[in-house]
Computed example of a mutant assay.
Amino acid sequence: MNDPQPARNDSIDSQLPRILFFNVNGSGMGHLNRCLSYARRLRGRARPVFFSLASAIELIEEMGFEADYFVSPYWSSSSTFAWNSELAVRFGMMLERVRPDVIVFDGTWPFQGFLATCETFGSPALVWSNRGLLKEGGKTVSVDESRFDLVIQPGELGAQESETPLEGGGTRALVPPVCVLEDDELLDRATAREALNLPQDGRFVLFALGPGNLKDVAGIAHGLIREFEAAGFNVVWVRAPISVRDIELPAGVMPLTVYPLARYLRAFDAFVGAAGYNTCCELVQAGVPALLVPNAQLADDQVRRAHMVADVMPAVVSACETDDERETAVSKLLGLLNATPAERAAIPMNGAVLAAEKILALAARRERTQ
């Protein structure tokens, strides 16, 4: 149930600007999602190619894009120096093969092996896609943004497009939230249930508490599953494509593996999950009432983001660490489900389109100067 795409025409692709996406492997799918969001909007106007540190490389290929995989430093037994040296060789081989017009890096900070290879290669136009909303006082790594022609900041809910100049002649561009799919690609309730082989009757809640790579979510999950089942819900559990360990599900809970998940969200009456960037953007896009359980172990401020969601749509925010917290949170969400929906304000969600246009314009400028 992935993104069906037409076969590539290599003769046409060879005449298009080449955009090389380098996505790191985070705790979730965020970096890969954003690169795929940009690449989908470039289809037919550029030739997107991926160099991915995320293990779910088959998702890239199923969307119709070329991809090469290199192991993330978090899963490598090499030292930092050795890994960056290995990266420089592998990425250099990728640059020789693809010869991109633009390189787009999506990650918290660019690796030294990556930057050194770009400089050695003669560096085509360089873009850094860098999501913000980090916690105050959190660990940061200083990066010289003047090395980039364009820094794209995927905005949080309510962000408006803006540009500011960077030292070195580049541009920092803030864009509205970035989503993999357009609004008209989301299935309605009946169609989504049919696609997932779910009955049209009955109440279903979708759990997406993350892959559990950094935080053990089993206790919270089992407690919330009991609460929802007691309220008459059928529980569906999303298994993340990059999960390295899955929790043992109680009998009766249905596992689900689909990508992109946003396409099928409206099949469900309610959603339970962490407050990652993509999750929150897609929930607002789909309008599915949610119980958000922020993951406090990550660098981004998920608590703040979850409350942004609750300000614009029916959502409850809770750590759900104790039985009392879980019971209260589920009760509040059920109250929202039974309330008359309020009129939703229009929120711009076209960040992927705007970012893709800026990347394409950068490629065009590079072609004119060659």
Rank of each mutant, 00 (worst) to 15 (best):
L166C: 07
L166P: 06
V141L: 09
A125C: 14
E145S: 08
W128N: 05
G122Q: 11
A116K: 11
L134D: 15
G168I: 03
L133D: 11
N130I: 01
S129Q: 02
F114A: 12
G158H: 05
V98W: 08
L126E: 00
G155P: 09
W109H: 11
E145A: 11
T120K: 14
E136Q: 13
G107K: 04
R131K: 14
G107F: 04
S162E: 12
L126N: 00
G132I: 15
T108G: 01
S129H: 01
S162N: 15
I152Y: 07
P110I: 05
P154D: 15
E136L: 13
A159S: 14
V151S: 06
L166H: 04
A116C: 01
R131W: 06
V102E: 02
T108M: 07
D144A: 12
S129G: 10
K139F: 08
G107A: 13
I152D: 00
P165K: 12
I103N: 03
R97L: 15
K135F: 01
P100T: 06
L134I: 08
W128Y: 14
D149Q: 10
E167F: 09
G122M: 12
L134S: 11
Q112V: 15
W109C: 06
D149S: 13
A116G: 09
G122T: 14
G169F: 10
R131Y: 06
F148P: 02
A116V: 06
L126K: 11
D106A: 10
V141E: 06
E161G: 03
A159W: 08
F114P: 05
G132C: 14
I152E: 01
G158N: 12
Q153M: 04
L157P: 02
L166T: 06
L126Q: 07
L133A: 07
I103Q: 03
F111A: 15
L126G: 02
T108S: 10
T140M: 15
G138M: 03
G138P: 00
F148H: 06
L166I: 06
F121K: 07
I103G: 07
E161L: 14
P154Y: 12
S129V: 14
E167Y: 04
G122A: 07
L134K: 05
E119I: 03
A116Y: 04
P124A: 07
A159P: 06
G158C: 05
K139D: 10
E161I: 10
F111D: 08
P110M: 01
L134C: 04
G169Q: 07
W109T: 09
D101N: 15
L166M: 12
T120Y: 13
D144H: 12
S123H: 07
S129C: 15
V98F: 04
L150I: 03
L126V: 02
N130P: 02
N130F: 03
G122W: 12
Q112G: 09
V143P: 01
F111E: 09
R147Q: 15
